[in-house]
Design a protein around this nucleic acid. Structure first.
Lengths: 224, 224
DNA sequence: TCGTACACCGTACGTCGTACGCTGTACTAT
DNA sequence: ATAGTACAGCGTACGACGTACGGTGTACGA
């Protein structure tokens, strides 16, 4: 019996679907999704490449499982609090998770069928909105709007070559501004200067748009 | 001289960077970005694989050029009209372009440096917002919010396995609902039913969120 | 006529995903 | 104790990939 348990739980010796998927996520975080190959993954697990196929039918299935595990990291909306706080928390959590796993965003385009964690998440969010007084159709609208914002923001943030305001200031001077002749791009130059002055921070930028959207959704409750 | 011009303009005989990039986009539209290989691309151009490398330094540079050409397809905000109409038109155009080239969205994560068309576009949008009375910082906020929505919506729309309301109704009955036990996913079942009844249309869904965002931005003009 | 530049190509290398078939171990039924 | 079956894992091989490298032919100025 203890031997059986040993096999269920991921242990150092012996593989398991969980160990494979977890290590795949770690590898993708480190090296990007391009650096994730079955051989390399097997290597970090101390196994042969083909052994992975006992736990995963194909690389596609592995990617699906990775995405679903990422979804599982996102905080579900709490039930007790008001809907705006609950949705804000889960949106911020989603944004942080996507920042931790930048490859996940790019993968979503290709994989169409949602995994169980994805479904659980969607159900919980919809429940929160319905309980807050949104009609089924309005809840769908809110869902699309909020998810679009979260995913789109993550996509843009992932393609930023800097993470902090300081790094921005550095890059602006060294890389961006030299590429932007002031007579051709007056407004971009103005923006860049304003951003460097104000100290642009992606996390704050995310909150700004999020709160704007949440406030705009508020009047649509109990209206449908 | 006429022979020289011949070489600048893409003609049927002879390659050119434009012909290569255009055909690459066509191929990616048809087969997805996974189906785009240098060999296949060369094949459709009636050339050898290595010939492409006279016009493109690497596949990465080819992808960058493709993305920039896609940006070039997006309608710029008109100067004469009010800012909401101008931004709505350009957002709808962007959404349509991204729907035409679903692979473009997934590529944005990896390529960090914006091409000339991207810069031109960004400049025009920023100009429109500034002229409408947004402060430089508010214009940046509006830009992030609107672009996030557009990209995120396109990302979600791309992973939908249907395009029209009729196809949704079909898939809901055949594929979705059987996967969603009503006791575990009551709200998703309710949503699905409501959507099938109302006839969900991605294009309308996009407009709904877009107008909500535009209206929410309106009070922020001339305030910074 | 020669030299040089250009446009293009064939071959080769190391990588990828994975089909296929082989090993050894563990357990179950007899 | 023995045979049968399942499982976990591996090695090899195939066709695709991006692309480095070194060609070949044609066009054209000197």
């Amino acid at each position: 019996m203890s031997a059986k348990d040993q096999r269920q739980v991921p242990s150092d010796a012996g593989l398991s679907k969980q160990r494979v998927v977890l290590e795949a996520i770690r590898l993708a975080d480190r090296e990007g999704v391009g650096g994730l190959s079955m051989r390399r993954l097997a290597g970090t697990l101390g196994a042969g490449a083909m052994s992975l196929y006992h736990y995963v039918a194909s690389k596609d299935e592995l990617l699906d499982a990775m995405i679903d595990l990422v979804f599982d990291e996102i905080e579900l909306p709490a039930e007790g609090t008001d809907w705006q706080s609950a949705m804000r928390r889960r949106a911020v959590s989603a944004q942080q998770v996507l920042a931790r796993h930048p490859w996940a965003n790019g993968l979503m385009e290709s994989r169409t069928s949602p995994g169980p964690a994805n479904l659980r998440h969607h159900e919980a969010v919809t429940a929160c909105l319905r309980r807050a007084g949104f009609s089924p159709l309005m809840a769908t609208h809110a869902n699309w709007l909020l998810d679009s914002y979260v995913y789109g923001f993550a996509l843009q943030a992932a393609s930023l070559p800097f993470d902090t305001a300081d790094e921005l200031a550095e890059m602006a001077e060294d890389v961006y501004l030299p590429q932007l002749p002031p007579d051709e791009f007056p407004y971009l130059n103005e923006s860049a200067a304003a951003l460097v002055d104000a100290g642009f921070d992606p996390a704050e930028e995310f909150i700004f748009g999020l709160d704007l959207v949440l406030a705009a959704l508020e009047p649509l409750r109990t209206a449908g």
